[in-house]
């Protein structure tokens, strides 16, 4: 157990060091990235020194690194050059939107992927299986932003029934339940584009493991017991097909949650973590990049931990493996 903890601590240090180093390997420096483009401003050497000093950019790299490490343990993620506020404030303002969009899309694509996968695998080779299989593969073979743009044109521009962009209508004066509905209305298009893209991996995995599961003796036994078809399908074969899905969702949720929706966020101007990271790379905003990467790392670790617990519930055999 001690060894395990030690390896966790070492891994954590390697990760936070990489978080520090990698953004700084990008060509260009924050001062040029933020101020360099604008011909209208007058970045005198005094102004340059003042900004470097204010953001601690002039300090040697090693000093910057130690300040960064110490700050992390104090719960301080640093100060954003571009947004001119603490990184924690920047992150907390973007994370809820990401959780909402990605959480919902993972949830819906997961549920529908599993159901379709179970039904499809159960009826392998039949017409309905072939139909679902080809439809899902067809719809997910388009890149997410393309699906987004098509949805935008059809529902936003031609039919005009759904909002074109944003997380809500700014300064609409809406309150209470109407405001919530406005949020949901703005979610529909980006959410459905993401569901369409995510559904295939979940569907294919479920279908595949379903196909191998229905050949197992326990399915035969269940049949022999005279259980109903749907009971065998969902509670016996289906349940056992979920194990690979759980693993996959764990990896997905951590990484996709933050970065997976970047194109969709840009197409729909949705204020999520993807667009924040993209902007921070463009502006070489090291503290925000470090902070976002740290959050992603922690999220992956936490989710993996939760999945370990969840596994045991899903498949009690795992408990005996230790």
């Amino acid at each position: 157990m001690k060894k395990r903890w030690l390896s966790y601590i070492i891994a954590f240090f390697i990760i936070i060091t990489l978080n520090f180093v990698v953004p700084r390997l990008l060509p260009g420096d924050p001062l040029s990235a933020i101020y360099g483009d604008e011909v209208l401003i007058n970045l005198s050497s005094e102004a340059r020194d003042y900004i470097n000093e204010a953001y601690g950019l002039g300090k040697p790299l090693l000093t910057q690194y130690f300040i960064y490490i110490i700050s992390i343990f104090k719960g301080n993620l640093g100060y954003s050059f571009y947004y001119k506020k603490p990184v924690l404030d920047v992150l907390t303002s973007y994370i809820p939107y990401s959780l909402l969009l990605m959480g919902l899309s993972m949830f819906f694509s997961g549920i529908s992927g599993i159901i379709l996968g179970i039904e499809s695998g159960w009826r392998r080779g039949k017409k309905i299986d072939r139909f679902i299989l080809s439809t899902v593969i067809f719809s997910s073979s388009f890149p997410s932003f393309f699906v987004g743009v098509v949805f935008l044109v059809i529902f936003g521009v031609i039919l005009g029934i759904l909002p074109l962009q944003g997380a809500r209508e700014a300064y609409s004066g809406l309150t209470g339940i109407k405001l919530y509905l406005d949020f949901l209305k703005h979610l529909i298009l980006p959410l459905s584009s993401l569901i369409l893209v995510f559904i295939s991996s979940c569907y294919l995995l479920t279908r595949n493991s379903m196909i191998s599961n229905i050949k197992e003796p326990y399915v035969l036994l269940a049949r022999a017991k005279g259980l109903s078809d749907s009971r065998i399908r969902y509670l016996h074969a289906g349940r056992n097909s979920l194990i690979p899905i759980a693993t996959q969702s764990g990896i997905h949720l951590g990484t996709q949650l933050i970065t997976g929706a970047i194109f969709i966020e840009i197409v729909f101007s949705y204020p999520g973590m993807g667009s924040l990271i993209y902007n921070s790379i463009l502006n070489r905003d090291y503290p925000v990049l470090q902070g976002s990467l740290l959050i992603v790392t922690l999220l992956v670790l936490i989710i993996n931990f939760l999945i370990d617990i969840f596994y045991v519930k899903l498949d009690p055999r795992i408990n005996y493996a230790y």
């Binding site: 994370i95 809820p96 939107y97 959780l99 909402l100 959480g103 919902l104 993972m106 949830f107 997961g110 997380a167 919530y180 949020f183 759980a246 969702s249 939760l306 999945i307 969840f310």
Partner: peptide, 18 residues
């Protein structure tokens, strides 16, 4: 997993309302 997702969604809705 679903419970976790529900929790996440609940939290984010709460934050958004804030």
């Amino acid at each position: 997993m679903r419970k976790i997702l529900f929790l996440l969604i609940l939290i984010s809705l709460l934050l958004l309302s804030l």
